[in-house]
Amino acid sequence: MSETSTDELTPDTKPAKYSGDRYFGWTSHPKAGLIIFIFVGVLSLGLAVADFFVHRHEYIHIAEFKMFYALYGFIAFGGVVLSGWPLRKLLGRPENYYEPEEGESDNG
């Protein structure tokens, strides 16, 4: 850990304004999650509707089905994320599994 500069790192105890709030402060708003959900939902709906109006030229037969990419993206992503639950049970181990004698390390 010789190459870090954490001297200025102090826990935040009171609300304060930061330079980053100018760009991303809206993400801390209580309704931000819902707004993003609605935005992405509407965008998804638009892309789904567009699929019925745009002629697609596919080389892979299965991709010719309407909404194929949308459904595949949703299912693939969801499948990967949900697989995390059993996989973590199967493959997860304590942090000092390989180097118990050295104790914990922040460096991986």
Partner: peptide, 22 residues
């Protein structure tokens, strides 16, 4: 069609993230 299909794949995948997170 190329841009549309790529956007469909990614935006619906992002939607899955948001739904699963919520």
């Amino acid at each position: 069609d190329h841009v549309l299909t790529q956007m469909q794949l990614l935006v619906f995948a992002a939607l899955a993230f948001i739904v699963l997170n919520r």
